[in-house]
Computed example of a mutant assay.
Amino acid sequence: MNTLPGTKQMLLHYLHDVRTALRWKCEGLSERELRMPRTSTGTNLIGLVKHAAGIEIGYFGETFSRAWPTPDEVPWLDDFDDDPNADLYLSADESSRGILDLYGRVAEFADSTIADLPLEAHGHVPWWGDRGDVTLHRVILHVITDLSRHAGHADVLREEIDGAVGLIPRATNIPDIDHRAHVATVRAIAESFPQESRP
């Protein structure tokens, strides 16, 4: 008997894991910590979750002619002409709890698209222009890749805030070592090279 999961099950497994990772990186932090920009381009933890929600609404909604049921709660999806970063930070009247709750509902919406359509279902990504004809299979892979990149961003941001690290709650994937000693070793090796050296 074949007990291996089917392709759609495997794709959903990885999609669910990356969503879990993004939300987990926000746990236990204050509103201020979640909103604070932590890179020179303004990347912040809760902004990554808001961005992920927009990604999934677009790719699992509009691409397959499925409308997000309450467009008035995501006005920032139409604000890109006024603010091209509207989906990457929370305005003063948005709350982190509200965005995390929204992302939970977006995940259900996206999962229903995946459940209702075959992997070969055809869609069109309007913002891709002429190359926008896709299958559901391709879209799921694209979204997993995109969200995984942002989960990696969230990983680094969270580590910088309070040292918390890990892949997902059930499997942190972090060796139990003396990280200070490891950092010292890596730093010493790096500093042994001339500063002007280029690969």
Rank of each mutant, 00 (worst) to 15 (best):
M1Y: 09
T3N: 15
G6R: 05
K8F: 00
Q9T: 14
L12R: 06
L12V: 03
L15G: 01
D17H: 10
D17L: 13
V18G: 02
R19A: 10
A21C: 11
A21W: 01
W24G: 03
W24F: 09
C26V: 10
S30I: 04
L34R: 03
R38P: 00
R38T: 06
S40E: 06
G42Y: 02
L45A: 07
I46W: 02
H51I: 05
H51L: 05
A53E: 00
I55W: 04
I57P: 01
F60V: 05
F60T: 04
F64M: 03
R66N: 12
T70L: 12
T70N: 14
W76A: 04
D78H: 14
D79F: 03
A86D: 02
D87H: 13
S95Y: 09
D101H: 02
R105H: 15
A107T: 06
P118W: 04
A121S: 10
H122N: 11
G123L: 05
V125A: 05
V125I: 12
V125H: 07
V125P: 00
W127Y: 14
D130V: 06
R131Q: 15
T135Q: 09
H137C: 00
I140D: 01
I140F: 07
H142G: 03
T145G: 14
D146L: 04
D146K: 06
R149Q: 14
H150R: 13
G152Y: 08
G152I: 12
H153Q: 15
H153N: 13
D155H: 14
D155E: 14
L157C: 13
E159W: 12
E159C: 14
L167R: 12
R170C: 09
P175Y: 04
R180K: 14
A181I: 06
A184Y: 01
T185R: 15
V186N: 02
R187D: 13
I189G: 08
A190I: 14
E191Q: 13
P194E: 09
E196M: 12
E196W: 11
S197R: 15
S197M: 13
P199R: 07
